[in-house]
């Protein structure tokens, strides 16, 4: 048997110290991804540091507006929170579009952000994967890559980030609070994830041992009009084939502010800044939304089996924004 140690630290400092002292250690939260990967032999930690008993479970309004979500808040609790549902519906809908009821009851906010790609080659130790085993190659690059990236991939890795939550957080300009050996730090979601580049095994910009303690949502009144649209191969319990998180603020039909992020297209949740720039300050029409998506997707480089994702993402961009604008398509 491959045995491992299990520790339940008393506080965040002890948790960070435990990880810092052991390069093979891993944090355990809901376990909905890590435990599966351990059974498959994809991840083989020798120490699990259970963070679920740390006092990181609250959802609190912030003094200047916004919300602070503790890292161990379960996905189901976060989705059901009345303030989230009222002020950030995109977040609630992204969570409810993910996984199953049972998984949402276990999965945590921090764990959701740290989940690994569901690329089939990553999950099979019998196949080449630079993310799992650097230097072995990327079997997906010229393999069965229908579900994988169209943007920002590298020859070393074409995986996508699987989280729906992270896509909503990217659109909301959320900030991740991180505890490290030297103290605490704020990392905007936009800077939290890495492009695969030459090192797909590194998925976030966090140093080893860092622990997510909370996620902060800045005040964003426009987010009351926000949506998450997820396209998947079956009606529930499936990862996105493509998804879009959208916030739209119109002033007499003119786009005053807009936030757009895509899921299932890249190694990280994809904030669509070019599309936003195209939209901002212009009178909203579905055609404008289409042009904005085109501007964003100009950089797309589809793989052998996923060229359809480009028109798919365009279509859901137009739909999400048009529905938020309340205009006829």
């Amino acid at each position: 048997m491959r045995s491992f140690h299990y520790r339940r630290p008393a506080d965040v400092a002890e948790a960070v110290a435990l990880l810092g002292a052991d390069p093979e250690a891993a944090y355990l939260a809901g376990g909905t991804n890590l435990v599966d990967l351990m059974k498959l032999g994809v991840q083989r930690p020798d120490l699990l540091v259970d963070v679920t008993r740390l006092p990181l479970g609250g959802i609190e309004p912030l003094p200047g507006g916004g919300l602070r979500i503790g890292a161990t808040v379960r996905n189901s609790s976060l989705a059901a929170h009345p303030v989230v549902r009222r002020d950030y519906p995109v977040l609630s809908r992204a969570l409810l579009a993910a996984a199953s009821g049972q998984l949402r009851n276990m999965a945590t906010t921090g764990g959701n952000l740290m989940q690994r790609t569901r690329c089939v080659y990553f999950q099979d130790t019998g196949k080449a994967c630079n993310k799992r085993e650097p230097g072995t190659g990327c079997a997906a690059r010229h393999g069965q890559n229908r579900d994988l990236a169209i943007l920002d991939w590298s020859e070393q890795c074409v995986a996508t980030h699987p989280s729906d939550l992270a896509v909503a957080l990217a659109a909301l300009d959320a900030v991740v609070e991180v505890a490290e050996a030297g103290g605490t730090r704020d990392v905007p979601v936009a800077e939290f994830y890495r492009s695969p580049g030459e090192h797909p095994e590194r998925e976030t910009t966090l140093p080893r041992g860092a622990l997510i303690t909370a996620v902060r949502l800045p005040p964003l009144p426009a987010a009351r009009r926000s949506a998450y649209l997820k396209v998947r191969d079956r009606a529930s319990f499936a990862f996105a084939v493509g998804s879009v998180a959208a916030v739209l603020d119109l002033d007499a039909g003119v786009v005053r502010d807009v936030r757009l992020a895509y899921g299932a297209v890249a190694h990280r949740p994809w904030r669509a800044l070019r599309a936003e720039a195209e939209l901002r300050g212009r009178p909203f029409t579905p055609e404008l939304a289409g042009r904005a998506a085109d501007a964003e997707l100009e950089a797309a480089r589809p793989l052998s089996h996923n060229a359809f994702k480009v028109p798919l993402v365009r279509a859901i961009t137009v739909r999400a924004l048009t529905e938020l604008a309340g205009v006829e398509a």
Partner: peptide
Amino acid sequence: HEEGVLDERYGDWVNHDLATYHITACAD
């Protein structure tokens, strides 16, 4: 929904679990 997706180089179906080999869910 269902489809065994074969990778000819490896000679087996790459979607060999219930997360990636989709079977109709109740909502369908």
